[in-house]
Design a protein around this nucleic acid. Structure first.
Lengths: 126, 126
DNA sequence: AGTCACTATGTACATTTAGTACATAGATGT
DNA sequence: ACATCTATGTACTAAATGTACATAGTGACT
């Protein structure tokens, strides 16, 4: 049973680090260097987002391509194993990425306000 | 047509500040002092999340109550206008709130890593 | 009395996003 | 032949989010 916690209710308690911000992360990764799904999944893990389901990454990358944020080519030779679909960012992708970076900056500010407000709460002495 | 932006595609470009983190904000607000939907909406606005649809707040608060994170009573007398459903936080709610605060701290760290990585990207000179 | 504005809460529906389960397949080693 | 690792993807399901609308009390103005 996923997503459970002790507290009687249900539905809360997920919120693994920054899953809700995976899109900008993926786009940043391909902006740094062209890459493919399987590798992106590992890199996400290294950036603090481990355990992302492969299908989510593949789906997101295809959506990016439909939105012209990235382009892809097949790489059949460089590696052992099956062919890889290698994505690289487009000019549109770079613009969107900048947008997202600015929005995430705002988000971080708002979140910091939240954390400050939380700390000023009177906590019951344990 | 909501959610559009110039870039040919669709589906990106929303991400108003921290909408995706509204739940912790609401719970924090009622932790600070008992409050009711209409007031919460205004307070969210002051905290950097303006324009939240009322129905979202009411629904979320009812969900919180179902999960025993808050309790509510009707306040019929104190104010002019229709009766208010006043929420106050429970012990369970405080525990969850602490959980969420810790998770948001992690999120902020991951997001800061992202922003740093973004800045280190070689930007094309404009 | 009628109606407008503001306060206040909620339901019903539709859309979007996220998550799970499963299917396929190439290359390498035993 | 079979297992394992690499690699990509489809189909289905569940959850979150957003939009539109319905209801109603109070006060001020005409």
């Amino acid at each position: 049973m996923p997503g459970r916690h002790g507290w009687g209710g249900r539905g809360h308690g997920r919120h693994l680090p920054a899953r809700r911000h995976m899109e900008p992360f993926l786009l940043l990764l391909v902006a740094r260097k062209p890459s493919y799904g399987y590798e992106l999944i590992q890199e996400l893990g290294e950036m603090g987002m481990p355990g992302v389901a492969p299908s989510l990454v593949y789906r997101m990358m295809r959506q990016f391509e439909m939105d012209d944020l990235v382009l892809s080519d097949w790489d059949t030779d460089t590696a052992a194993g099956p062919a890889r679909r290698v994505y690289r960012i487009t000019a549109d992708g770079l613009m969107i990425l900048q947008d997202w970076a600015e929005q995430l900056e705002d988000t971080v500010n708002v979140l910091n306000d939240f954390l400050r407000a939380y700390e000023q709460l009177e906590h019951p002495e344990k």
